[in-house]
Design a protein around this nucleic acid. Sequence first.
DNA 1: TATTTATGTCAGTCATGTTGACTAATTAGG
DNA 2: CCTAATTAGTCAACATGACTGACATAAATA
Lengths: 197, 197
Amino acid sequence: MTDINTAKGSGEGPSKDPIDRMAPDVGLPSAVALERLTPVVELIFFAYRDFTSESDAVLEAYGFGRAHHRVLHFVTWRSGLRVADLLETLRITKQSLARVLKKLVDRGFIVQEAGAADRRERRLYPTLEGRKLAEQLRALQTRRIAAALGEIEPAGQAAALGFLLALTAQPDRAGLAQMLADCGMTPSRPMTETRVR
Amino acid sequence: MTDINTAKGSGEGPSKDPIDRMAPDVGLPSAVALERLTPVVELIFFAYRDFTSESDAVLEAYGFGRAHHRVLHFVTWRSGLRVADLLETLRITKQSLARVLKKLVDRGFIVQEAGAADRRERRLYPTLEGRKLAEQLRALQTRRIAAALGEIEPAGQAAALGFLLALTAQPDRAGLAQMLADCGMTPSRPMTETRVR
DNA sequence: TATTTATGTCAGTCATGTTGACTAATTAGG
DNA sequence: CCTAATTAGTCAACATGACTGACATAAATA
């Protein structure tokens, strides 16, 4: 666990590697100082736990779980995607998806139709009911996000998104950054080619 | 050390409802505009998914899962806590915890000892091996966090933490904010109704 | 036509969450 | 001092959502 043993107190050196040039204020030399970030690990845990709690409660009333939420979300807001896209996005196996997707289809929240160009593909779409639930869940989540953004200084909002984007692994960054930009949500320091790790 | 909060002189607005006065830049009126935040929902999903992926891989080699990680984390970094504290923190049931905790104890990563004042209590402590694993996992996570903080403007780092703190529900905010402050990580606009200090 | 691709499905396993009931040890209150 | 409440451990049973591996089917492609 200690590949970070490079410089330590080196205050204002030229910063190249992201791991070395961090947080002047939130202060981060390099080696030992990483442990100062321990509470941030917990912060992320608590934030995610609470971010999902509201929608989880709604889902429960429908007899769905978080897995159904994820599927319904992407099918609704990236309407027309294929099963393969969903597998790639969620990083789960076909069988895991099948169980969840089947339930959503059986219960009338999602419909499948063969692709126009390639009829092996099943394009996925929400039904009216599916869209309604997806909207309800989105409302809960975006409301919480909006409230949280409202609690920080406007100047820092782009940075907050930039931080989350930087936590995300490369393969998904570009698409996310594009989506954010399309919605007028420009993260600070967008997709800098970073090989974290 | 708190000089980050001075960023931009926009701080003195007539702040009303958090949901109404948000994001001039990241722009947020109120009603319909919430749907512009949809990609942020996905951003949070991807960020969390990728944030946990590295440590999950290490855990797998030990035959542990994310549940064990959470327990080991809190037992190590809040050493000496009681079972009841853990239940409260993780928001799981006694039985869920028992299975995971028992495995960690049986495998020699955690020890329990009766509380000094109240001998019904079982205070939890990591063994040497437990601490080693916890350190390894923490290193992975803090390294990723540090890299992500390094990718945004220093001025925005406090805001990024403030955003996550704002996503967290009240009960846990105070303690988190205190921990962050103790480590020199001051989130911007800390706790609204949570006076610590 | 033969192969590859996209999807669906069967069968079984594992991890982690749940409930409810019960025991044991210890402390606290009347 | 004896009963209450508290803290923790445990059993049995169950649900969800991951996983693997094997196999089926339809459609596109070489």
